[in-house]
Amino acid sequence: MGASKPKQSPVRTVLRWLLALAYSYAGYRHLATPAPFLAITPDWVPQPAFVVAATGVAELAGALGLMLPQTRKAAGWGLALYALCVWPANFHHALANVAINGETLGWWYHGPRLAAQPLIIWWALWASGATDWPFRRRPDLP
């Protein structure tokens, strides 16, 4: 008999599925309707249309990777890095007061959105099993 795999937490499983669904939807939106994403892309980003399309593909690949046990941790690290790399676009959106479809969003949106990015980064790492922090203590700690 082979060694059994440790049972996954139902909470982690549900949150992994929610994250995969969110990234799948975002990836689809990046590819189907790139205009809002192009609008918030900082001017210093080269080839913004290519970058927006590439981020859509990255989101879809990361979402799929979360669902496959063989690629789950790598997908978590990739999505965490992705979320870190797109954070400047969120800052640009907020600080430049960029209008999307003629509408600007106030700090009621931008404040929580910017503050949530570290949580999204952690979520990708935790849901993928790349980290257990802060829920599991190391055995050598009291």
Rank of each mutant, 00 (worst) to 15 (best):
E59H: 10
V11A: 15
T33W: 06
A53E: 05
Q70C: 05
R29D: 14
A26M: 07
A32W: 06
R137M: 00
L38C: 10
R12G: 11
R12L: 14
E59Y: 08
Y28D: 04
G27I: 03
Y28E: 03
W133E: 01
L105W: 14
L15W: 12
R12P: 08
A99D: 01
P112S: 06
H30M: 07
K5N: 01
N90D: 07
T55M: 09
P36N: 06
L84E: 00
L38H: 11
T104V: 12
V86H: 00
F135S: 02
A63D: 12
V51F: 06
V51I: 12
V51T: 06
P69M: 10
A61E: 01
Y82V: 01
F37Q: 09
P88W: 08
A74L: 15
V45D: 08
A39F: 03
G129C: 13
T104N: 02
I120E: 10
A20K: 03
P42F: 03
A22Y: 14
K73T: 14
A80P: 09
L15F: 15
W17S: 13
T41V: 05
A20M: 09
V14C: 12
L64D: 00
R137T: 00
Q117C: 07
W133I: 02
L38W: 10
W126E: 02
R72A: 14
Q70R: 15
L66W: 09
K7C: 04
M67H: 04
R138V: 00
P36I: 04
V86W: 00
R136H: 07
A20W: 03
W122A: 02
A94D: 09
L95E: 12
A80T: 12
E103S: 07
P6M: 07
Y28V: 12
R29E: 14
L114W: 00
L15H: 04
P88N: 11
Y23M: 15
A89Y: 00
W107S: 05
G129F: 09
A89L: 00
T131N: 05
T131W: 02
L79N: 07
G2H: 13
A130I: 13
W87V: 01
S24Q: 06
P42C: 05
R29H: 13
A35T: 12
G56L: 11
P46W: 09
A35L: 07
T13N: 11
T33S: 11
A116M: 13
A80K: 06
A63R: 09
Y23L: 15
F91L: 15
G76P: 08
V14P: 01
T104Y: 02
W133H: 04
G62S: 11
L60M: 14
